[in-house]
């Protein structure tokens, strides 16, 4: 078997078609994960009884186990739960009607949620306590202070970590092959095995991921510069 450089180009375009799938998994899991993570982080920061212990357990479990196990647990566990409930309550909805990509969305959002909660938490803790006190002193309610003062600053502080999480989810989306979703990785596998050119196909897939990662990094750097503007210190 010889390396066939021209096939890398062919494979590149064939794999290119799977980019929307990969991106949709990434975007959905990042957005839902961010929502879950924010709630989890707030529950832990404000030490809400019971809920904060549950949140800690959730974060510990997710961060201590591989993302692949989350996907497999959801894939095999969720249908059991749904079908069990459907039977006892007489719903017509069955787990069969969940598309494969749905399992990836759900499981990766849960994974992302735990990691994002740490990102949000670190960001919130980076905000000076005096900012919230100042907000209260000008008559803001706790919620207003959170929404208008702490959260924007926390987000700015968390941005580098947030970008890392997004890249992590982009790379993690390759696991979707386990539930037969055709993302970039699975497409590479298909291209590779139909043409019997494995190295070339994976090289093309690696190049695509490399490019996407570079794009995310570039975008994050731009946003970081923009939102960090209030915090540069110095004169002018």
């Amino acid at each position: 078997m010889q390396l066939d450089p021209s096939f890398i180009w062919t494979a590149f375009w064939q794999i290119f078609r799977a980019i929307p799938t990969t991106l949709s998994i990434t975007v959905v899991s990042v957005l839902l994960g961010f929502a879950i993570g924010t709630v989890t982080a707030l529950v832990r920061l404000y030490r809400v009884p019971v809920l904060s212990q549950m949140a800690s357990a959730y974060v510990t479990f997710i961060r201590g186990t591989p993302m692949l196990t989350h996907l497999l647990l959801i894939y095999f566990g969720l249908p059991m739960l749904i079908d069990g409930l459907a039977e006892s309550f007489g719903w017509s909805f069955r787990s069969v009607s969940i598309p494969m990509i749905g399992f990836a969305y759900i499981s990766f959002s849960i994974t992302a949620g735990a990691y994002m909660s740490e990102v949000v938490r670190a960001g919130m803790q980076a905000v000076d306590r005096g900012q919230v006190e100042a907000a209260h002193s000008v008559g803001m309610t706790s919620f207003q202070a959170l929404r208008r003062i702490s959260f924007p600053q926390a987000l700015a502080a968390a941005l580098p970590n947030l970008a890392n999480s997004v890249i992590g989810m982009l790379h993690g989306s390759t696991l979707a092959f386990a539930v037969s979703v055709v993302d970039i990785n699975a497409q590479a596998q298909i291209v590779a095995s139909t043409n019997w050119k494995f190295f070339e196909a994976y090289l093309a897939a690696a190049l695509i991921f490399w490019g996407l990662t570079a794009l995310i990094e570039r975008a994050a750097a731009l946003i970081e510069k923009r939102v960090g503007a209030y915090n540069r210190g110095g004169v002018a």
Partner: peptide, 23 residues
């Protein structure tokens, strides 16, 4: 650094497994 941090480990695994013997 850019390559190994910019591509998923799963792709790297396949790349090494299929590519290294050929290279």
């Amino acid at each position: 650094l850019s390559f190994f941090r910019g591509t998923p480990i799963l792709i790297q695994l396949f790349l090494f497994y299929y590519g290294l013997p050929e290279l």
